[in-house]
Amino acid sequence: MSDIVLETRGLTKHYGGVHALEDADFTLRAGEHIAVVGDNGAGKSTFVRQITGVEQRTAGKVWFGGDEVTFSGPIAAREAGIETVFQNLALADDLDVPSNLFLGRELIKFNLGPFSILDRKAMRERTQEALTKTAVKIPNLSNTIRNMSGGQRQCVAIARSASFASRLIIMDEPTAALGVQETAQVENIIRGLKERGVPLILVSHNLRQVFDLVDRIVVFRRGRIVASLAKHETDGNDIVSYITGVKGAEAGAYA
Protein backbone atom coordinates (compact mmCIF):
# COMPACT_ATOMS: atom_id res chain seq x y z
CA MET A 1 0.00 0.00 0.00
CA SER A 2 2.77 2.36 0.92
CA ASP A 3 4.45 2.09 -2.48
CA ILE A 4 1.65 4.02 -4.18
CA VAL A 5 3.03 7.32 -5.44
CA LEU A 6 -0.05 8.81 -7.04
CA GLU A 7 -3.65 7.77 -6.80
CA THR A 8 -6.83 9.40 -8.10
CA ARG A 9 -10.40 8.39 -7.29
CA GLY A 10 -13.36 9.65 -9.30
CA LEU A 11 -11.31 12.46 -10.83
CA THR A 12 -13.72 14.52 -12.93
CA LYS A 13 -13.42 17.71 -14.96
CA HIS A 14 -16.26 19.48 -16.74
CA TYR A 15 -15.74 22.53 -18.92
CA GLY A 16 -19.24 23.93 -18.79
CA GLY A 17 -21.30 21.22 -20.50
CA VAL A 18 -18.28 19.36 -21.85
CA HIS A 19 -17.38 16.35 -19.75
CA ALA A 20 -13.69 16.22 -20.57
CA LEU A 21 -12.78 13.83 -17.79
CA GLU A 22 -15.20 11.51 -16.04
CA ASP A 23 -14.59 9.50 -12.90
CA ALA A 24 -10.94 8.59 -13.47
CA ASP A 25 -9.39 6.07 -11.08
CA PHE A 26 -5.66 5.84 -11.53
CA THR A 27 -2.80 4.36 -9.52
CA LEU A 28 0.94 4.79 -9.97
CA ARG A 29 3.38 2.76 -7.89
CA ALA A 30 6.96 3.54 -6.91
CA GLY A 31 9.38 3.38 -9.83
CA GLU A 32 6.59 2.63 -12.28
CA HIS A 33 6.46 4.12 -15.78
CA ILE A 34 2.91 4.46 -17.09
CA ALA A 35 1.84 5.56 -20.54
CA VAL A 36 -1.39 7.45 -21.02
CA VAL A 37 -2.77 6.91 -24.51
CA GLY A 38 -5.98 7.75 -26.32
CA ASP A 39 -7.37 9.61 -29.27
CA ASN A 40 -7.34 13.40 -29.52
CA GLY A 41 -9.80 14.82 -27.04
CA ALA A 42 -9.96 11.58 -25.07
CA GLY A 43 -9.03 13.40 -21.87
CA LYS A 44 -5.31 12.66 -21.55
CA SER A 45 -4.16 16.24 -21.33
CA THR A 46 -7.13 17.16 -19.16
CA PHE A 47 -6.13 14.38 -16.78
CA VAL A 48 -2.56 15.72 -16.63
CA ARG A 49 -3.76 19.27 -16.04
CA GLN A 50 -5.79 18.15 -13.02
CA ILE A 51 -2.89 16.36 -11.30
CA THR A 52 -0.37 19.13 -12.00
CA GLY A 53 -2.62 21.84 -10.61
CA VAL A 54 -2.78 23.74 -13.92
CA GLU A 55 -6.57 23.45 -13.61
CA GLN A 56 -8.87 22.76 -10.67
CA ARG A 57 -10.84 19.54 -10.80
CA THR A 58 -14.64 19.47 -10.75
CA ALA A 59 -14.82 16.44 -8.47
CA GLY A 60 -12.78 13.53 -7.15
CA LYS A 61 -9.77 13.04 -4.94
CA VAL A 62 -6.02 12.88 -5.50
CA TRP A 63 -3.45 11.32 -3.19
CA PHE A 64 0.22 12.00 -3.71
CA GLY A 65 2.79 10.18 -1.60
CA GLY A 66 0.05 8.98 0.72
CA ASP A 67 -1.42 12.40 1.45
CA GLU A 68 -4.59 13.78 -0.06
CA VAL A 69 -3.61 16.86 -2.07
CA THR A 70 -5.22 19.80 -3.84
CA PHE A 71 -2.65 21.84 -5.73
CA SER A 72 -3.54 25.51 -6.08
CA GLY A 73 -1.29 25.80 -9.15
CA PRO A 74 1.63 24.27 -11.04
CA ILE A 75 4.07 25.78 -8.57
CA ALA A 76 2.44 24.04 -5.63
CA ALA A 77 2.56 20.75 -7.54
CA ARG A 78 6.20 21.34 -8.30
CA GLU A 79 7.01 22.09 -4.71
CA ALA A 80 5.38 18.81 -3.76
CA GLY A 81 7.78 17.05 -6.16
CA ILE A 82 5.80 16.69 -9.40
CA GLU A 83 7.72 18.02 -12.39
CA THR A 84 5.96 18.44 -15.71
CA VAL A 85 7.39 18.73 -19.21
CA PHE A 86 4.64 20.62 -20.96
CA GLN A 87 3.67 20.14 -24.58
CA ASN A 88 4.53 23.73 -25.30
CA LEU A 89 7.99 23.98 -23.79
CA ALA A 90 8.21 26.10 -20.69
CA LEU A 91 11.56 27.54 -21.66
CA ALA A 92 12.72 31.12 -22.00
CA ASP A 93 14.27 31.36 -25.48
CA ASP A 94 16.60 34.21 -24.70
CA LEU A 95 18.23 32.76 -21.62
CA ASP A 96 21.14 30.33 -21.61
CA VAL A 97 20.87 26.71 -20.54
CA PRO A 98 21.71 27.11 -16.82
CA SER A 99 19.30 30.03 -16.44
CA ASN A 100 16.55 27.93 -17.98
CA LEU A 101 17.31 24.94 -15.82
CA PHE A 102 17.15 27.08 -12.71
CA LEU A 103 14.35 29.39 -13.84
CA GLY A 104 12.29 30.33 -10.81
CA ARG A 105 14.74 28.67 -8.38
CA GLU A 106 17.99 30.41 -9.22
CA LEU A 107 21.03 29.86 -7.04
CA ILE A 108 22.02 32.96 -5.14
CA LYS A 109 25.50 34.05 -4.14
CA PHE A 110 24.48 37.08 -2.12
CA ASN A 111 20.95 37.83 -1.03
CA LEU A 112 19.70 41.33 -1.91
CA GLY A 113 16.01 40.60 -2.39
CA PRO A 114 15.06 41.04 -6.03
CA PHE A 115 18.59 42.23 -6.77
CA SER A 116 20.25 39.14 -5.32
CA ILE A 117 23.51 38.26 -7.04
CA LEU A 118 23.23 35.06 -9.10
CA ASP A 119 25.71 32.27 -8.56
CA ARG A 120 26.23 31.60 -12.27
CA LYS A 121 29.25 29.40 -11.70
CA ALA A 122 27.39 27.02 -9.40
CA MET A 123 24.37 26.97 -11.73
CA ARG A 124 26.68 26.09 -14.63
CA GLU A 125 28.33 23.28 -12.73
CA ARG A 126 25.05 21.83 -11.53
CA THR A 127 23.67 22.10 -15.07
CA GLN A 128 26.66 20.21 -16.41
CA GLU A 129 26.06 17.51 -13.80
CA ALA A 130 22.35 17.31 -14.60
CA LEU A 131 23.02 17.05 -18.31
CA THR A 132 25.64 14.36 -17.79
CA LYS A 133 23.28 12.43 -15.56
CA THR A 134 20.55 12.50 -18.19
CA ALA A 135 23.03 11.88 -21.04
CA VAL A 136 22.15 15.12 -22.80
CA LYS A 137 24.84 16.76 -24.91
CA ILE A 138 24.65 20.49 -25.39
CA PRO A 139 27.66 21.99 -27.15
CA ASN A 140 27.74 25.34 -25.45
CA LEU A 141 25.88 26.02 -22.22
CA SER A 142 26.11 29.80 -22.55
CA ASN A 143 24.22 29.82 -25.83
CA THR A 144 20.62 30.92 -25.65
CA ILE A 145 17.92 28.30 -26.14
CA ARG A 146 16.68 30.18 -29.22
CA ASN A 147 19.52 28.90 -31.36
CA MET A 148 19.06 25.26 -30.44
CA SER A 149 17.28 22.52 -32.31
CA GLY A 150 13.89 21.24 -31.18
CA GLY A 151 15.53 18.13 -29.80
CA GLN A 152 18.10 20.02 -27.79
CA ARG A 153 15.41 22.25 -26.36
CA GLN A 154 13.29 19.28 -25.41
CA CYS A 155 16.32 17.67 -23.78
CA VAL A 156 16.95 20.81 -21.75
CA ALA A 157 13.30 20.84 -20.67
CA ILE A 158 13.48 17.19 -19.66
CA ALA A 159 16.85 17.54 -17.96
CA ARG A 160 15.34 20.40 -16.03
CA SER A 161 12.46 18.25 -14.81
CA ALA A 162 14.65 15.22 -14.23
CA SER A 163 17.18 17.08 -12.15
CA PHE A 164 14.59 18.54 -9.81
CA ALA A 165 11.85 15.95 -9.73
CA SER A 166 12.16 14.18 -6.48
CA ARG A 167 9.04 12.10 -6.80
CA LEU A 168 7.23 12.12 -10.17
CA ILE A 169 7.76 13.32 -13.73
CA ILE A 170 4.92 13.89 -16.15
CA MET A 171 5.68 14.30 -19.86
CA ASP A 172 3.00 15.46 -22.25
CA GLU A 173 3.99 14.21 -25.72
CA PRO A 174 7.68 14.94 -25.30
CA THR A 175 8.65 13.74 -28.78
CA ALA A 176 5.66 15.03 -30.75
CA ALA A 177 7.69 17.56 -32.73
CA LEU A 178 11.02 15.77 -32.90
CA GLY A 179 12.99 13.95 -35.55
CA VAL A 180 14.13 10.34 -35.35
CA GLN A 181 17.51 10.92 -33.70
CA GLU A 182 16.13 13.47 -31.32
CA THR A 183 13.31 11.16 -30.34
CA ALA A 184 15.84 8.43 -29.63
CA GLN A 185 17.76 10.81 -27.42
CA VAL A 186 14.65 11.70 -25.43
CA GLU A 187 13.72 8.03 -25.10
CA ASN A 188 17.20 7.34 -23.82
CA ILE A 189 16.69 9.92 -21.10
CA ILE A 190 13.44 8.22 -20.16
CA ARG A 191 15.24 4.86 -19.83
CA GLY A 192 17.74 6.57 -17.56
CA LEU A 193 14.88 7.74 -15.35
CA LYS A 194 13.59 4.19 -15.17
CA GLU A 195 17.00 2.97 -14.03
CA ARG A 196 17.10 5.64 -11.38
CA GLY A 197 13.64 4.59 -10.20
CA VAL A 198 11.95 7.93 -10.92
CA PRO A 199 8.26 7.29 -11.64
CA LEU A 200 6.88 8.67 -14.88
CA ILE A 201 3.58 9.36 -16.57
CA LEU A 202 4.12 9.57 -20.32
CA VAL A 203 1.38 10.97 -22.53
CA SER A 204 2.05 9.72 -26.04
CA HIS A 205 0.49 8.94 -29.38
CA ASN A 206 3.35 6.72 -30.40
CA LEU A 207 2.51 3.11 -29.55
CA ARG A 208 5.93 1.82 -30.62
CA GLN A 209 7.44 4.21 -28.11
CA VAL A 210 4.95 3.29 -25.43
CA PHE A 211 5.65 -0.44 -25.74
CA ASP A 212 9.38 0.29 -25.76
CA LEU A 213 9.43 2.37 -22.64
CA VAL A 214 6.72 1.83 -20.06
CA ASP A 215 5.43 -0.86 -17.69
CA ARG A 216 1.75 -0.20 -17.94
CA ILE A 217 -0.59 1.42 -20.43
CA VAL A 218 -3.70 3.35 -19.47
CA VAL A 219 -6.18 4.01 -22.27
CA PHE A 220 -8.50 7.01 -22.28
CA ARG A 221 -11.59 7.21 -24.42
CA ARG A 222 -14.18 9.97 -24.36
CA GLY A 223 -13.06 11.24 -20.98
CA ARG A 224 -12.99 7.84 -19.30
CA ILE A 225 -10.27 5.36 -18.48
CA VAL A 226 -11.30 2.27 -20.45
CA ALA A 227 -8.26 0.06 -19.82
CA SER A 228 -5.21 -0.23 -17.61
CA LEU A 229 -2.99 -3.03 -18.86
CA ALA A 230 0.46 -4.30 -17.99
CA LYS A 231 2.67 -4.23 -21.08
CA HIS A 232 3.18 -8.00 -21.20
CA GLU A 233 -0.54 -8.82 -21.13
CA THR A 234 -1.44 -6.74 -24.16
CA ASP A 235 -0.25 -5.78 -27.66
CA GLY A 236 -0.62 -2.98 -30.16
CA ASN A 237 -3.83 -4.27 -31.72
CA ASP A 238 -5.40 -4.71 -28.33
CA ILE A 239 -4.57 -1.14 -27.33
CA VAL A 240 -5.83 0.24 -30.64
CA SER A 241 -9.16 -1.50 -30.20
CA TYR A 242 -9.50 0.11 -26.78
CA ILE A 243 -8.55 3.52 -28.19
CA THR A 244 -11.07 3.25 -31.03
CA GLY A 245 -13.83 1.79 -28.87
CA VAL A 246 -14.00 -1.67 -30.44
CA LYS A 247 -13.21 -3.06 -27.02
CA GLY A 248 -14.17 -1.74 -23.63
CA ALA A 249 -17.14 0.30 -24.81
CA GLU A 250 -19.07 -0.91 -21.79
CA ALA A 251 -16.17 -0.01 -19.53
CA GLY A 252 -16.53 1.27 -16.06
CA ALA A 253 -13.63 2.13 -13.81
CA TYR A 254 -10.35 0.24 -13.76
CA ALA A 255 -8.06 0.43 -10.81
Binding site: A135, V136, P139, M148, S149, Q152, A184
Partner: peptide
Protein backbone atom coordinates in the same frame (compact mmCIF):
# COMPACT_ATOMS: atom_id res chain seq x y z
CA UNK B 1 22.51 8.13 -30.97
CA UNK B 2 22.33 10.32 -27.91
CA UNK B 3 25.90 11.35 -28.59
CA UNK B 4 25.34 12.33 -32.22
CA UNK B 5 26.43 15.88 -32.71
CA UNK B 6 23.49 18.09 -33.61
CA UNK B 7 23.73 19.99 -36.86
CA UNK B 8 23.03 23.38 -35.34
Amino acid sequence: VAGVAPKT
